[in-house]
């Protein structure tokens, strides 16, 4: 199918549906021990990570290995990006090393597109700056789909640092395309300018955002944002913006709780919520594995 998966914004509803279907088939194969472990034999995958990551990189690495691909991990310290080899040159080197697919994470928005535009290999964006993190949104959507068997009419509430979040952007596009209603909430300093023109609602309070939510998603608060003055203190943040037991009372009684991880316990979300019965945070991780395996197979084996 597509050469690269760079964002959710430009995916069609049909493409997202197809990915969901393939992910579900993959999940059945994993659970039923009927996986074709040689599906990607002879395919060379490189994970090219310019930012630290454990879960996403491991998830992709396992996804490739479980299907029989060769997976090479390259981590490049962020600080050397500007001094070292250019991204385009690195991409061309990987092409020359018979790479079929590059999974890239980079601190600069648009980096995945820049790479894709300049290499023969297929590219999956594993997070580019504040732009998008499409596989995270796909696994979030897959998780919601497994719970509700539909998207239409669902209310998805996203809390936290929307401004700097690629996860928020990808989820806003994805869920809204599939017919769900997305509401975002966070302090004004962590909401990006023009967010009201994206396909989402901007809530005025935690209760307003929670009201009637079927899925409640917290986003990681980078602690350095507080040091830069974007909010005054952790305790103030917790009191007015976090996902807490009190706040979630306004959501639907059976609403699920999601988080892309890694979580700052008792900052953006209380431990009670994280470990509570509504939490699907660990399911998200397992579902991510299935979604990424499905994507790799679709892109490299054409099925």
């Amino acid at each position: 199918m597509f050469k690269s998966l760079l964002d959710i914004q430009n995916l069609s509803v049909d493409e997202i549906r197809l990915i969901m279907t393939k992910a579900e088939e993959m999940k059945k194969d994993i659970d039923g021990d009927t996986l074709d472990v040689a599906a990607l034999r002879g395919k060379n995958i490189v994970t090219l990570f310019y930012e630290n990551s454990t879960r996403t990189r491991t998830s992709f690495e396992n996804a490739g290995k479980f299907l029989g691909a060769n997976v090479t991990n390259i981590s490049i310290a962020n600080s050397s990006v500007q001094k070292g080899e250019s991204l385009i040159d690195t991409g061309k080197t990987l092409d020359a090393l018979s790479t079929h697919l590059i999974v890239i994470r980079h601190s600069a928005s648009g980096a995945a597109k820049l790479l894709s535009d300049n290499v023969e290999a297929k590219v999956i964006n594993a997070g580019d700056g504040m732009h998008e993190h499409p596989t995270q949104a796909l696994l979030d959507m897959f998780t919601v789909l497994l719970h509700y068997r539909k998207f239409e009419g669902l209310k998805i509430a996203i809390f936290g640092d929307i401004k700097h979040s690629r996860v928020a952007r990808s989820n806003i596009w994805g869920f809204s395309k599939m017919g769900a209603e997305v509401t975002v909430y966070g302090p004004s300093t962590l909401l990006p300018d023009g967010i009201d023109k994206m396909p989402c609602k901007v809530a005025r309070s935690v209760q307003d955002a929670m009201k009637g939510a079927d899925a409640v998603m917290g986003l990681r608060i980078q602690l350095e944002r507080q040091q830069k003055g974007l909010f005054p203190s952790i305790s103030e943040y917790k009191k007015y913006f976090a996902v807490t037991d009190a706040a979630i009372k306004s959501a639907k009684p059976n609403a699920i709780v999601m988080h892309p991880g890694p979580v700052n316990r008792n900052v953006e979300m209380t431990s009670d919520i994280i470990d509570g019965a509504r939490s699907v945070i660990n399911e998200q991780v397992s579902n991510g594995q299935a979604v990424r395996m499905a994507l790799l197979k679709m892109m490299l084996a054409g099925a």
Partner: peptide
């Protein structure tokens, strides 16, 4: 420029 297009592309805006 800080605004809708910077937000869409994930580029840090300048007010």
């Amino acid at each position: 420029n800080e605004g809708y297009h910077a937000t869409l592309s994930g580029l840090k805006g300048i007010t």
